[in-house]
């Protein structure tokens, strides 16, 4: 469905954001995770037709996005929520969404009204649709962003860091909405919050320094780190060895560390059930070790 072959993107002469990325993405919800600066946004922007790749091939639903025709064909089935969504503060939510619907080619008035009513309700904006966007909170603006991405019945939904800056309730609500959408179209979720992936994606990739470090299901990444996750209680000192610290919890008589990596000999370590976050930290750790 989405085929990415040897995709490279270089900004200027020196900054290589993507270094030969190969990915095949099918239907459902696909998660792309990686640290800041990994190249996630660059990849998303290339897929959305905003950036031209330096080298490589990208085909979406059989359309080559480096050609004008292919790009337009992809955009006609695309819903995109950028990391920073800009809105016209002078427009009401309804005016703005109607404008987006027209640009997306929903020209039939009845169909447009139907979609607008449905999506406004889905995004929980029914009571606020007639208010100017300048009066909206960050969470409400994010919901308007989701609503505009869903207009026009997209077959591909690209959402870049959708949950950053949202409160926990809004985050869960948004994740559920995206999961629901994944039943109808391909959803590409880019995030640096591993929890977003673990809660909603059945397929994922980890990107680091412009390269794909991992490609598979969240379950596979968790299995890859099984037997390498420990908890260690100390009096306060950090455990020795090369294990990465996933979390730290202050106890009454010391500190409990959650570690990922080889077993620590300096302190008694208890093996624990791995999580996706552990797998992610382990991958990052391995990448650093490989580079060293």
């Amino acid at each position: 469905m989405i085929s990415i072959i040897q995709l490279t993107k270089t900004y200027g002469k020196k900054v290589q954001a993507l270094r030969g990325v190969d990915l095949e993405i099918g239907s459902g919800m696909f998660g792309l995770v990686g640290p800041n600066g990994a190249g996630k946004t660059t990849l998303m922007r290339i897929l959305a037709g905003l950036l031209r790749p330096t080298a490589g091939k990208v085909s979406i639903f059989g359309n080559n996005i480096t050609t004008g025709k292919g790009k337009l064909a992809v955009k006609s089935v695309l819903g995109y929520l950028p990391q920073e969504l800009g809105l016209y503060p002078d427009l009401t939510a309804f005016e703005f969404l109607e404008y987006v619907a027209l640009l997306k080619g929903v020209t039939d008035k009845k169909e447009r009204q139907k979609q607008l009513v449905e999506i406004i309700e889905l995004a929980g904006l029914t009571g606020d649709a007639k208010h100017r966007l300048r009066t909206f909170s960050g969470g409400m603006k994010r919901r308007v962003g989701i609503a505009q991405a869903l207009l026009g019945n997209p077959q591909l939904l690209i959402v870049d860091e959708p949950t950053s800056g949202l409160d926990p309730e809004e985050r869960v609500r948004l994740r559920n909405l995206l999961a629901e959408m994944a039943g109808r179209c391909t959803v590409l979720l880019s995030t640096h919050i591993v929890e977003d992936i673990s809660q909603s994606c059945n397929d994922m990739a980890v990107l680091h320094q412009g390269r794909v470090l991992f490609r598979g299901s969240p379950r596979e990444l968790i299995e890859a780190v099984r037997g390498k996750v420990w908890t260690v209680a100390t009096k306060g000192e950090q455990p020795d060895g090369g294990a990465g610290i996933v979390s730290t919890m202050q106890l009454q008589d010391g500190v409990q560390y959650r570690l990922v990596g080889e077993r620590v000999d300096s302190h008694p370590a208890m093996p624990v059930e791995p999580s996706l976050e552990d797998g992610y930290i382990w991958l990052m750790q391995q990448s650093r070790l490989d580079q060293a």
């Binding site: 037709g49 006609s76 995109y80 969504l85 800009g86 016209y88 640009l103």
Partner: peptide
């Protein structure tokens, strides 16, 4: 103004030339 409001990004992802 589209750059200032940040609408430039999503505008270019619509099937608009």
């Amino acid at each position: 103004a589209d750059h200032v409001f940040g609408t430039w990004e999503w505008l270019r992802t619509t099937p608009l030339t």
